[in-house]
Amino acid sequence: MSEVLIKIRGLKFSRGDRVIFNNVDMDIPRTGITAIMGPSGTGKTTLLKLIGGQLRPDAGSIEVDGQNIHQLKTRELYELRKRMGMLFQSGALLTDLSVFENVAYPIREHTKLNEAMVRQLVLLKLNAVGLRGAMDLSPAELSGGMARRVAMARAIALDPMMIMYDEPFTGQDPISMGVLVKLIKSLNDALNICSIVVSHDVYETMSIANYVYIISAGTVVEHGSPEDIHSSDSEWTRQFMEGLADGPVPFHFDAPPLFDDLFAVSERRRG
């Protein structure tokens, strides 16, 4: 079995005139946590949707477990997705179902297990994320962090080979952030699967990642182990990791020189 679970080659994708990815290559290993980091708006979530087959690239290929995901028939794609888990930023829980029913949903859809077995599985999954006691609550009664944990329990319901986390730490208080970091790490280690964490929270993500890709302006600007990234002398990586206001990503939005602009205004008034 190949060590690489997801192989991305020559990926190009654009929305309208805006190029999101321009010739991106990536290898994501079968086990361990791979972090994909970059500033907001670089297309990190888009990348996950491309891997999940929800979007189609303009060029290039994405292979998941040896299968080119964009050449699969719908039925084959759905079969492959049964082995993928995805955690959306909002949790994406079904609002008309309880916490228990949300976690039971993929099990009921894809297996013919009896009710007792479904219950046992759901309770075990909920216990793993510490929310067995919340099984009768509705999604509206959960905090953002709890909703993500329920979504995690749902994502591991069918024992997938990989889980994709879309910005799991965004908008969380320090405690639930700590809980999520610990959970991603412990689930990955316990299930020995591939976890892909898309995030711009540098500290939390680097603390659990085994391998890191940094993307910006449509390309991979740096990749390697967290230690490699920390010791990188790339100007771009330094700006992102240290949160510097100015650098390769400029502080000022593209504009003509200040003097010209001021002069243009006074000219306009006079005219």
């Binding site: 999940g52 759905y78 997705r81 888990g85 909002s90 829980l93 079904l94 609002t95 993929p106 749902r154």
Partner: peptide, 17 residues
């Protein structure tokens, strides 16, 4: 609203049409 809250995408990723 199900689309806006990613519930439809979530179903797709759970291999449910």
């Amino acid at each position: 609203l199900m689309k806006a809250t990613e519930q439809l995408s979530g179903m797709e990723m759970m291999a449910v049409n």
